[in-house]
């Protein structure tokens, strides 16, 4: 099968949908001839024209609201937010409007929109352009939250997100844009709320999101050399969360490490860990659950410091080994 990049897969998912459905359009800052801050929409204005690839002013509140208002009245907008950090400026519209309109209105009206946005660190853009704020959005009933990790997944998940009748926050890790993978040319959909076991193993489960899926897979390769068999589960969507797949994996391995780039404190890893703690998989645990996440610090500029602020492969290896060395001792 042909290989394309994660970025090309995002563009292809949008373009194929826009060819089929006139209600789908994209709006955002610099998405026209510039092609978007990361080049995701390059070529799209040439194909679809400025009516359907709408270049907007730098007005994150208004463009989020315009997306919501158009969704409420029959369009299916895709809003590209230049950096996920800027969701702070769209927050009222996403949290108080998009997420709640349907409920507040007693089930009348729907908001079928996707907010796509590049997230994460690793580009040297420092504290205001490098955050991973997905946990905020998972806290809001009414929103769905997607965090793809591969080119194949991003194409199928984006189609599902566009087809969904609810507001979906769709995070694209910047460092994944150039990663390649096998991606079918035809359209396909990956249902929201279905995790994927990226690697099977028997000794420990790592649940990792976005770029951490790749770091966990790297760690698994290293650990295999030492005879440790790691299973890597990628939830792919945080809301809805496929707890069943995670629970099944933990029952099999009896050990769990949760990894995300976002700051560990208040991060979504806590939700995953407690989902296990509250489930019958708890009885299967042979060691305390381990969480690996970003340090509680703004993302620094210096490449050395930036790298140190978020989990790296050795941190994951260490966490896995800790869970293997620690046992829950039960006294009869």
């Amino acid at each position: 099968m042909r290989e394309i990049t994660f970025l090309e897969a995002v563009r292809e998912a949008m373009s194929q949908e826009m060819r089929q459905n006139q209600d789908v359009f994209i709006l955002g800052e610099d998405i026209g001839v510039y092609g978007g801050a990361f080049g995701v929409t390059r070529g799209m204005i040439e194909e679809f024209g400025p009516e359907r690839v709408r270049n907007t002013p730098i007005s994150e509140s208004a463009i989020a609201g315009a997306a919501i208002g158009s969704a409420l009245t029959g369009m299916r907008p895709i809003l590209e937010l230049q950096f996920s950090d800027f969701i702070t400026i769209s927050m009222d519209q996403m949290v108080n409007q998009a997420a709640k309109l349907r409920y507040m209105y007693g089930g009348k009206g729907k908001v079928p929109m996707v907010l796509r946005t590049p997230a994460g660190s690793g580009t040297g853009a420092a504290a205001q352009h490098s955050q991973s704020l997905e946990a905020w959005m998972t806290h809001i009933p009414g929103l769905k939250v997607v965090q793809p990790s591969t080119a194949y997944d991003v194409k199928g998940l984006l189609k599902a997100a566009i087809d969904d009748d609810n507001p979906v926050i769709f995070y694209e890790h910047k460092l994944l844009y150039k990663t390649k993978g096998e991606v079918p040319e035809e359209q396909y959909s990956i249902p929201l709320g279905k995790a994927d076991v990226k690697r099977e193993g028997t000794d420990v489960t790592i649940v990792a999101t976005a770029i951490m899926v790749h770091k966990a897979l790297e760690a698994a390769v290293e650990l295999e050399k030492e005879g440790i068999s790691v299973e890597v589960v990628d939830p792919r969507t945080l809301v809805p969360l496929d707890t069943e797949t995670i629970i099944e994996s933990v029952k099999k391995t009896s050990r769990l490490v949760v990894v995300h780039e976002a700051v560990k404190r208040g991060g979504y890893g806590g939700e995953i860990a407690s989902a296990i703690a509250e489930s019958d998989a708890f009885d299967y645990l042979d060691a305390p659950i381990k969480r690996v996440g970003g340090k509680a610090v703004p993302i620094p500029y210096s490449p050395k410091l930036e790298k140190a602020a978020v989990p790296q492969v050795p941190d994951i290896i260490e966490a896995v080994k800790e869970t293997l060395n620690k046992r829950i001792v039960t006294y009869a």
Partner: peptide, 8 residues
């Protein structure tokens, strides 16, 4: 902003 979206 919602009004603007509906007008769009």
């Amino acid at each position: 902003p919602l009004a603007v979206g509906a007008a769009l």
